[in-house]
Nucleic acid binder design. Structure first.
Lengths: 145, 145
DNA sequence: TGCAATTATATTGTACACAATCTAATTCGA
DNA sequence: TCGAATTAGATTGTGTACAATATAATTGCA
């Protein structure tokens, strides 16, 4: 019943459910994020800002697995909204300091409610969620070499 | 040590490692897929075609969790490459029959080697990979209602 | 039977995502 | 110390994703 093409079936691939699950879950964030006027990418960038207050683009990229080609327009958008400031570092003009503004800090109050709205979508027990988290982090670490 | 903002830390979110892991793993496919002149999205569309030979757009979308706005340009590209044909169904002109061509079928021979090149990236035991797969499929099913 | 609702796909507009390339600033080594 | 190599971001081009809308074909029901 099996042949040499079995590995090419969607049901036998691990990457595909990962890809689909990620996309579907991000889509579930949209209603909650619309109320903050943020996209998912802007939201994870703000999560970095809420934790770090001040950080440069390369570091944000390292934390989010994104490069400057993606981050530059995202950060410019967040700057337009008044949530962050962007300015060249004193001492090394190549660097860009990204800083959280008061308005950005204030948005955190509304954002606190987001994770609680997403959790029910998962339908996993806390143990399962923990296992899933560990396996994903292990895989991410392995891919980072 | 914990406060009400803990849920907003990247390390406490399940969606983020899912999103990052998916992106990084898709990136690992690129060298292998470049040799087939396929992107990842084109590759999973071809996986559907290799299994089904003939299928319509809505069905492909249901299998891949993609809508016509994404699939239409992808399928047109695959048609340009001569891997599939697109033609209106006889009997229901709204539908589009997507059919695998001989050239598309032939590409399967080269594609067979792709999954084996990706597996080592994961660094998971077969049991762990199985667990991850099950948890992702369970979550996908739950999100499909 | 005729027209309102539904269905299948396509189009438009916005926002990533990333490879490749570019520019400017900094560092490092002969 | 000066020019090559490196580094940090920005830009460009291609290809998704998806919401919203459009269009055309089909269905269903009053």
């Amino acid at each position: 019943m099996s042949d040499k093409y079995d590995s090419l079936k969607l049901e036998n691939q691990l990457c595909f459910p990962l890809y689909a699950c990620s996309k579907e879950l991000v889509r579930r964030y949209k209603p909650a994020l619309n109320r903050l006027d943020l996209t998912y990418t802007q939201y994870i960038a703000m999560m970095v800002m809420w934790e770090h207050k001040k950080i440069n683009v390369t570091e944000i990229g390292r934390l989010l697995y994104l490069d400057s080609g993606t981050l530059t327009p995202v950060l410019k958008k967040l700057e337009q909204k008044g949530l962050i400031t962007r300015s060249r570092c004193k001492g090394d003009e190549r660097c860009l300091d990204v800083c959280l503004t008061d308005k950005g800090e204030a948005l955190k109050e509304k954002a606190v409610e987001v994770p609680g709205k997403i959790a029910p979508c998962l339908a996993l027990t806390p143990e399962e969620a923990g296992t899933l988290y560990s396996l994903l982090r292990k895989t991410l670490a392995a891919m980072g070499e």
